[in-house]
């Protein structure tokens, strides 16, 4: 009675670990759900992308087009790059970008070298007071930039560094270190100690361990940290504005801020082109490295 009447009435066996899924027919409700989903995705993409497309189109329009047709109108000539030429040559955007690069990359190099070494010392080496030093670095994440601006301005002024690129490099390096040291210490914590112990037994000095083992092992993390710092420094306004008010080292952000004022009345095309140049550079970087950027920036924030 029980053992033989098995096959027809029994439900099909369910594969373990997988929820039972019944193929649903296309009911109106399901079709509605798909439509709603498409609508929401479309809306999210539109509010993110449309302003940027408007920016790009605006940079291709002439001043006459700007003043005589509504601002949503498409450019008459999609290959009109004259505004870019004006922004680059007359607006000095090229020089501002060069200045930004001159300030950003040396700072980045310093932050990475000093930060990775400090993270290594704080996590792998054993010494008294390392907890205190780590806390000291951590405190720096909290301090608002405004708190150190004025003394630094005085100090740079008195040491005649004002007007050179050095105030930017030094300040960016110092403000970038706390987060970098902290993140690197976290990464080194994940590396098994046994690896360094084995290296020591094999006769490697601590410097050798650092250069041949530790650094290569966290190379990926170093790149991520550098990327995060790059965005912080490249996009910074406060420090750049304070230390480049005198001299020829205004960064792209400061230059862009002064851009409209420089031209007197509003020159729409060149202004849009200048903003666009600033945006496109970051966009290209983001196109290639988006997953890493997302991971890095979110890691940097939770810890901070």
């Amino acid at each position: 009675m029980t053992t033989t009447a098995s096959a027809p009435g029994r439900p099909a066996p369910v594969k373990p670990g997988r929820p039972l899924r019944i193929r649903r027919r296309m009911t109106p409700r399901r079709a509605g759900s798909i439509a709603l989903k498409t609508l929401v995705i479309g809306f999210l993409l539109a509010i993110t992308v449309l302003p940027l497309i408007w920016l790009l189109l605006g940079s291709l329009k002439t001043q006459t087009e700007w003043l005589n047709s509504p601002s949503w109108a498409l450019p008459e000539n999609f290959l009109n790059f004259e505004n870019y030429q004006v922004a680059w040559v007359d607006g000095d955007i090229g020089r501002y970008i060069l200045n930004s690069a001159l300030a950003t990359f040396p700072s980045l190099a310093l932050i990475v070298v000093l930060g990775v070494a400090a993270g290594f010392a704080l996590e792998v080496l054993v010494w008294k007071g390392r907890g205190g030093v780590l806390l000291l670095f951590l405190a720096g994440i909290m301090v608002p930039g405004q708190m150190i601006l004025l003394p630094l301005f005085s100090a740079y002024f008195q040491t005649h560094l004002t007007g050179t690129i050095w105030p930017l490099i030094l300040t960016y390096t110092a403000t970038g270190l706390p987060l970098t040291v902290f993140m690197m210490a976290t990464y080194f914590r994940a590396v098994p100690r046994e690896i360094f112990e084995a290296a020591a037994i094999d006769g490697a000095s601590i410097y050798r361990s650092f250069l041949s083992i530790a650094f290569p092992m966290v190379r990926n993390a170093v790149f991520t940290v550098a990327l995060v710092q790059f965005f912080f420094i490249w996009n910074d306004l406060l420090i750049a504005l304070t230390f480049t008010s005198v001299g020829d080292f205004q960064t792209i952000q400061v230059g862009l801020l002064n851009f409209t004022g420089q031209f007197g009345q509003v020159q729409y095309g060149p202004t849009f082109a200048a903003i666009c140049i600033n945006v496109v550079g970051i966009l290209v970087l983001y196109l290639f490295l988006n997953q890493r950027v997302m991971r890095g920036l979110t890691a940097g924030s939770v810890k901070g």
Binding site: L110, L114, G115, A117, A118, F120, A121, L122, V124, L125, V126, W127, V133, L136, F137, G140, V143, M147, I148, L150, P151, L152, A155, L170, T171, T173, A174, T175, L177, P178, V181, F196, A200, S205, I206, Y207, S209, F210
Partner: peptide, 28 residues
């Protein structure tokens, strides 16, 4: 001797600590 090398600690953490102290802690 390797992990507790005082000179190594100074070499690794010294420069970062120095810049951080001079440019951030002292100004605060």
């Amino acid at each position: 001797n390797v992990f507790g090398n005082k000179r190594a600690v100074l070499v690794f953490v010294g420069p970062a600590l120095l810049i951080y102290t001079v440019i951030m802690l002292v100004p605060v």
